[in-house]
C-alpha cells in the first residue's frame, strides 16, 4: 500500500513572506545542519564561560607538582576519572583551565567587536552622511590604517602599555573599525537620498536624529555579518598576542596563554597541553565563521552558495 505523502515539505516552501524575521531565521537555521551544530558548540562555550566557577572540577591554578604532565583520561587507582584532559607542566588540571579560558576569549572577542563596531559604525555613518572634508578625513585615516599590518602596531602598543585585558580590548577594537566604517559609509551614501530620510528631515528631525533613527536601522544588517566574523578574528588575535605573552597576565588562564605555557613540553612530545586549548580556539572560531556565513546568506540570499 502506498504511504500517505505528508504535506509538510510543500507547506514549508509556501510560508508567507511577512513572517517575523527572527522566526524565518529560526526556520532557516534548523533546515541548515552546519550552522545549527555551530550554534550548539558556541552554546557550550558560552555556558562554560558563564558558569566556569560551578563547572570546573578543580581550581585551575592549583599546582600539584607530583601529578604534572599526566595524560588525558587519567584515572586514579580506584579507576575514577581524575583529569579528563590531563595536566600541564605544573600539574594543573587542563580541563579546568580551558573552561576558565573560555571566559577571557569570549569576553575579549565580544568587547573588541563592540569597541570596533561602535567606533566604525559611528564614523562610517558620519562620513557617509556629511560627505565633504569630514568624509575625506575619516576615510584617509582608514586608508592609512589599512596600508600596514595592524598586528604589528598592536604588538608595539602592548609592549609599551604592558599586557592586560583593558589594553588588549581597545587595541583589537581599533584594529577592526575600518571594516565597519567602510561598509557603514557605503550603505549610508546609498540611503542618504531616499524618501524616508527626506521625510524625516521635512518633519524637522536634526542630523543626529536622522543618522540614529532613520539611517542606522537601515545599514545595520551587513554590519552584523561583519561583526560575527570579527568576533572570530578577535579571538584568534587575542590567542596570538597571549601566545607572545602580550595578552593577559599569566595568572588568568586564557587559551592562547595555556598554549604559550605548553611550549616547554613540546620537545618532550607531550602533545595534550598544546592540543586541547588550540582545539578549543579552533572549534569556537570555526563555529563563529560558519554562523557568519549562514547569517550572510540569510540576510543576502543572492550570495547563497558562493
Amino acid at each position: 500500500m502506498a504511504q500517505a505523502v505528508t504535506p509538510f515539505p510543500v507547506a514549508a516552501q509556501l510560508k508567507p513572506p511577512e513572517q517575523a524575521i527572527w522566526k524565518r531565521a529560526m526556520f532557516s537555521l534548523i533546515r541548515a545542519k552546519w550552522p545549527l551544530l555551530a550554534l550548539g558548540i558556541l552554546g557550550v562555550v558560552v555556558v562554560m564561560a558563564l558558569f566556569a566557577q560551578q563547572i570546573v572540577p578543580r581550581d585551575p591554578n592549583r599546582q600539584v607538582l607530583v601529578e604534572r604532565l599526566l595524560e588525558p583520561f587519567h584515572r586514579d587507582e580506584n579507576g575514577t576519572m581524575q583529569y579528563l584532559l590531563g595536566t600541564d607542566g605544573l600539574g594543573r588540571d587542563l580541563w579546568s583551565r580551558i573552561i576558565y579560558g573560555a571566559q577571557i576569549s569570549l569576553a575579549v572577542g565580544l568587547m573588541a567587536v563592540a569597541v570596533g563596531g561602535l567606533m566604525g559604525t559611528t564614523l562610517g555613518i558620519i562620513a557617509g552622511y556629511r560627505g565633504g572634508w569630514v568624509d575625506d578625513t575619516i576615510m584617509r585615516i582608514a586608508d592609512i590604517q589599512l596600508a600596514f599590518p595592524f598586528i604589528l602596531l598592536a604588538i608595539m602598543v602592548l609592549v609599551v602599555l604592558g599586557p592586560g585585558v583593558w589594553n588588549l580590548v581597545p587595541v583589537l577594537g581599533i584594529g577592526q573599525w575600518v571594516t565597519y566604517a567602510r561598509i557603514a559609509r557605503g550603505q549610508t551614501i546609498s540611503q542618504r537620498e531616499k524618501e524616508y530620510v527626506e521625510a524625516a528631515r521635512s518633519m524637522g528631525a536634526g542630523d543626529w536624529r536622522i543618522m540614529l533613527r532613520a539611517i542606522l536601522p537601515n545599514v545595520i544588517a551587513p554590519l552584523i555579518v561583519i561583526a560575527s566574523f570579527n568576533v572570530a578574528s578577535a579571538i584568534l588575535a587575542e590567542a596570538s598576542l597571549s601566545f607572545l605573552g602580550l595578552g593577559v597576565p599569566p595568572t588568568v588562564p586564557t587559551w592562547g596563554g595555556i598554549l604559550n605555557e605548553s611550549r616547554d613540553q613540546i620537545l618532550a612530545g607531550k602533545w595534550w597541553p598544546a592540543f586541547f586549548p588550540g582545539l578549543a580556539i579552533m572549534l569556537t572560531v570555526l563555529s563563529l565563521n560558519i554562523l557568519g556565513d549562514w547569517l550572510r546568506d540569510f540576510l543576502d540570499p543572492r550570495l547563497r552558495g558562493r
Binding site: 601566545f243 598554549l259 605548553s262 602533545w271 592540543f275 588550540g278 580556539i281 572560531v285
Partner: peptide, 22 residues
C-alpha cells in the same frame, strides 16, 4: 573553513609534535 579557523601557531606546534617528532 577549518584552515581559516585554526590559530596558525597551534598548527605549527601540532606539525612539530606529530610530523616532526613522532
Amino acid at each position: 573553513m577549518f584552515g581559516q579557523s585554526m590559530p596558525s601557531f597551534w598548527l605549527g606546534i601540532m606539525l612539530i609534535i606529530f610530523v616532526g617528532l613522532q
